[in-house]
Structure formats: C-alpha cells, structure tokens
Computed example of a mutant assay.
Amino acid sequence: MPTDNYEPNADATGTEPTAPPRTMLRQCAVQGAAVILVLSLAWPYFGLRSEPLPWPETAFGIGAVALLLARLSHQPSWWLWIHALFVPAAWAVSRLDIPPGWFLLGFIALLLFFRGAASGRIPLYLSNAATVETLSDLLRQHPGVRFVDLGAGIASTLVPLAQALPDKHFTGVENAPASWAIGRIRTRGIANILWQHANLWDQSLGDYDGVYAFLSPAPMAALWQKALREMKPGSILVSNSFAIPDVSPTEIIQVDDTRQTQLYCYRIP
C-alpha cells in the first residue's frame, strides 16, 4: 500500500500523533468537487427540459469525475477505486430500502473493530499461522525476554507465541474496543501475556527487547522515530509487510505462505 503522504503531528512533548485530518479532508474534497461539478451541469440541463434527474447515470457520472480528480491529484491506487465506486454504491444501496437503523448499527460495529483505521490509518490485520511460526523462530534466536505487539488485534499473534515461548513475556496493545475485548478473552489465563487497551503512541517501548507491528505504510516513519528514541540499543523492531521508508532493514525474512509475507527486521543502533 502507498504511504498516502502521512504527516505526523508531534506536539511539544514529543507525543506521537493520531492520524492527521488532512488526508480525510482531501478525500472528502475530491468527492465533494465531483458531486458539485456533475450536479451543477445535470440539474440545469434536465430542469430546463422538465425531466427528472436520471440518478443511475448521475451516480456513475459522479464516480467517473471523482476517479478523474483523484488521479489528477495523485491519490494512491486504492483510493481511486473508492472514489469511483462510492457514489454509485451509495445510490445502489439506497434502492434496497434498508431501515436506517441498520446503517447505524453497521457503523458502530465497524468503529468498534476498526477504530485504528479511522484515527490512525491502521486497519485490523491478522497475522497468519505461517507468519507466527516464522516470528516464533526469530524470537527463539533473540536473547531478549520481553516483547510487545503494537496493534495486537484479537491476540491472534500473541496467543500462539506465548504458548510456544513460555520463557518469554509478551504485551499486546490494542485500542479498538471490540478487538481488545476479544483479545482479552483469548489471553485470559495465559500468564506470560499482558493485554492492554491503549493507543500504541502512548506505549513506552523502553522496557522491551523487541517490538512487532503489522500496521500500514502510513505510520512507519513515525514509529521508527519513536523506536529510536525509546528502544534500547540492540533491541529489534519487526514490521510485517510494511518497510520503514528510507531505512535499510537489518534483515528481511521471507515467510513461506500464499501471500509471500515479508518481515522487515530493524536492529536499534
């Protein structure tokens, strides 16, 4: 995934950001411009002819203009699809006569599981079994005993790691309420897991020998700066799939799975 121009907003105390609002405002501006442009032409044209506005064609027209504006403004490829399909999809759903309460329920459910995507452009990613096994082999070779998973989801990584490595201690940090609750249930009774409901930027990394993160491209530069400030020399930062921009990893481990996962390992100098 592209970096989408992530711009950390560290404050005077050095606290790392939640995601800046500029990116979402930029995407809303693209959609808004497309709606205004298409409707400003369509309403007068069909109004003067006393004809109703053809909403299917208008919706797809808005999607096409939004796609063009997104491309001209150099949006990432995945945003192009979102801009092209957003209004047509909204029109199609409006034809289903779904009670509004279901939309509210769906929004709440998404927020409970994907709070990180809304606040920090960090979606819920789950590490697969092959990745966890590879990570377990890596940690066996590492002399440290304390490791933290930033954005730990539903503990799908920490539970098997803690069971495979009972001599090491693991901390999971998750801020999406529903994911945290599921993880809390899964980790209950596992003595070498500390499960925390917290923002990863508020988590001090100084007490850990290793950090694992499966986030997104957006926060990686800021995470590296946080790691350099807080982590001990010789400790390790492992990023699943997303490399730190302009920083050469100490090692890249290829996972033998269908998606060809790569683990980018960075030794703290």
Rank of each mutant, 00 (worst) to 15 (best):
V211F: 08
A222V: 02
A222P: 06
A213Q: 11
Y208T: 14
L205K: 13
A213Y: 05
S235C: 01
L215F: 06
W224A: 09
G234A: 02
G234I: 01
L223F: 07
A222G: 15
E230T: 01
P217V: 01
M231L: 02
L205Q: 10
Y208D: 10
P219M: 11
G206A: 14
Q203I: 03
W224N: 07
P217T: 09
K232R: 15
A218Y: 12
L205M: 12
P233H: 08
W224H: 13
Y208R: 10
Q203Y: 03
D202G: 14
K226I: 01
Q203C: 14
G234M: 01
D209E: 11
R229E: 06
G234W: 03
L215I: 05
G206S: 15
S235I: 00
M231V: 02
Q225P: 02
E230A: 02
A218W: 08
A218E: 14
L215Q: 08
M220C: 03
G234S: 03
G210P: 03
K226H: 08
E230C: 02
Q225L: 08
D209R: 09
G234P: 01
Y212V: 10
G234Y: 01
G210F: 03
Q225R: 15
D202A: 15
E230H: 08
K232A: 05
A222Q: 14
F214T: 10
P217N: 12
G210C: 05
R229Q: 06
G206D: 13
P233E: 03
A213E: 09
L223G: 05
F214E: 10
L228M: 10
K232C: 04
D207N: 13
L223T: 04
D207S: 14
S235V: 00
G210W: 06
S204A: 15
G210L: 05
P233Y: 00
F214M: 06
S204G: 15
I236S: 04
Y212A: 03
G206K: 11
P219F: 13
V211I: 14
M231R: 08
R229V: 01
R229C: 00
L228C: 07
P217S: 12
P219I: 05
L228F: 04
S235Y: 00
K226Y: 01
A213P: 05
V211D: 12
V211L: 10
L228N: 06
S235R: 00
Q203W: 06
S204M: 07
D207V: 05
L205N: 11
G206F: 03
K226S: 02
